[in-house]
Amino acid sequence: MAHSNQLSETERDFIEEIGNGYESRGLRRLQGLILGTLLTKGDPVSLDKLTEVLGRTKGPISISVRRLEDLGLARKVEGPNNRRNYYASHPNVFFKSFAQLKLPTVRKNKDLAERLLARIAAGEESSEQTTESLRHMEAFYSLLESFLEDFAERWAEVRQERFETDEAAP
């Protein structure tokens, strides 16, 4: 990845690690690189600046930025030149990422266990091991869902206390 001279070593490492984290979760590395770049900039960032910093062409950058917008992790903002599109990370990007990427998986797994246990309860055949595994799965994901929901409420409180913003929490 090519970098602008305006980035410090820490910023370059941060951007790379966000990109690597996205890739390790099965997402597009470029989306993580873009998000990492937005998180290092205090001012709105144009598509041209993103292409310069990341050493990529505008097409893939534009597609990835739109996907980040769809996920609620980045947003279009006003910049110095009205004829260009500018972007910034969402002010609550870490929670948004958690809510978009983690919580749905937890709920999906809990629902799967509940659905299959209901079929077993209705008389569908299943081994003791399968039934026991599904019970453990349902209990685990139910508890995790509860913890995550409690965490979301607590984070909203902490965010308001520590990071007063005009943006609505979560």
Rank of each mutant, 00 (worst) to 15 (best):
S97G: 12
R66T: 14
P104L: 05
A99V: 01
R162L: 15
Y22I: 06
G36I: 02
P60S: 04
Y22H: 08
E125H: 09
R56D: 13
R115C: 02
H3N: 11
F163W: 08
L30D: 05
N92G: 03
R83C: 03
F163Q: 05
T165N: 02
F95E: 08
N82C: 04
H136S: 14
L117D: 02
V158Y: 10
K102N: 11
A88E: 15
Y22M: 12
I120N: 07
R159Q: 14
N81L: 12
L7Q: 08
F151M: 09
R135E: 15
L50V: 09
L112A: 08
V158R: 00
E145R: 03
I63A: 10
Q31D: 11
R154K: 09
S97D: 10
N92R: 09
P44Y: 05
F94V: 13
L39S: 03
T10A: 15
W155C: 04
L68P: 04
G55Q: 01
A122K: 01
V65T: 09
I15T: 02
T57Q: 11
I18C: 04
G42Q: 07
R154M: 10
T131K: 11
G79S: 02
E153Y: 00
L38C: 08
L54Q: 01
E167G: 01
N85Y: 12
E128P: 04
E125N: 09
E125P: 08
E145W: 00
S64I: 00
L39V: 01
A99L: 09
R12P: 00
M1W: 05
V45P: 07
E132F: 13
K96N: 11
A152S: 15
I18H: 05
F147C: 14
A118S: 12
R159W: 05
K41E: 14
R28C: 12
R25Y: 14
L73D: 02
E16P: 02
S127A: 07
N82T: 11
E145P: 02
G36L: 01
E114N: 10
Q129F: 13
E52Q: 10
L27R: 10
E16W: 07
G32V: 07
G42F: 07
E153W: 03
E153C: 06
R119H: 05
G21N: 09
P104E: 00
T131Q: 11
H136P: 00
I18M: 13
E132D: 13
Q160R: 11
S64A: 15
L47W: 00
T37P: 03
K41P: 02
E114W: 03
L27G: 08
G79R: 05
V53N: 07
S24T: 13
E167R: 00
R29E: 15
E114G: 05
A156S: 12
E11C: 06
E157P: 06
D13E: 14
E23C: 13
K108Q: 13
I120A: 06
N109L: 15
L54P: 03
L54I: 06
A88R: 12
L101G: 06
V106R: 02
S126N: 02
K41S: 15
N85A: 15
E16M: 11
